[in-house]
């Protein structure tokens, strides 16, 4: 992978790494891809941070609990459903 790091440790030209990160976090389980990406992340703080934060984001999202459906919402839904069914039966 092309490396063109600046003195700051930021990685401005690692378009390929960004693409690999997208694929990796997106669920692409290619071992070679993961190996190249992790190798690059060891030498590039910006890509390492991006990778870490995206993985955490996906993890947090996966932990997000199911919203409880309020009783009133469910009641209104069933009133609507019953009205619709009643209308169908009359037709």
């Amino acid at each position: 992978m092309k490396k063109s790091k600046k003195q700051t440790g930021e990685c401005h030209d690692c378009g390929e790494a960004k693409e690999l990160i997208a694929r990796y976090v997106g669920g692409d389980e290619d071992e070679e891809l993961a190996r190249r990406l992790l190798l690059h992340a060891q030498t590039c703080s910006e890509c390492a941070t991006l990778l870490r934060s995206l993985r955490r984001l996906v993890h947090y999202c996966s932990l997000e609990p199911t919203c409880e459906m309020p009783v009133t919402v469910r009641r209104e839904l069933w009133v609507t459903i019953q009205r619709e069914i009643h209308t169908r039966r009359r037709e």
Binding site: T72, V73, E76, L77, T80, E84, R88
Partner: peptide, 13 residues
Amino acid sequence: ASEALQDAFMRAF
């Protein structure tokens, strides 16, 4: 969300 929920099931029906 409640309105969209009702609309979705009505359309499905």
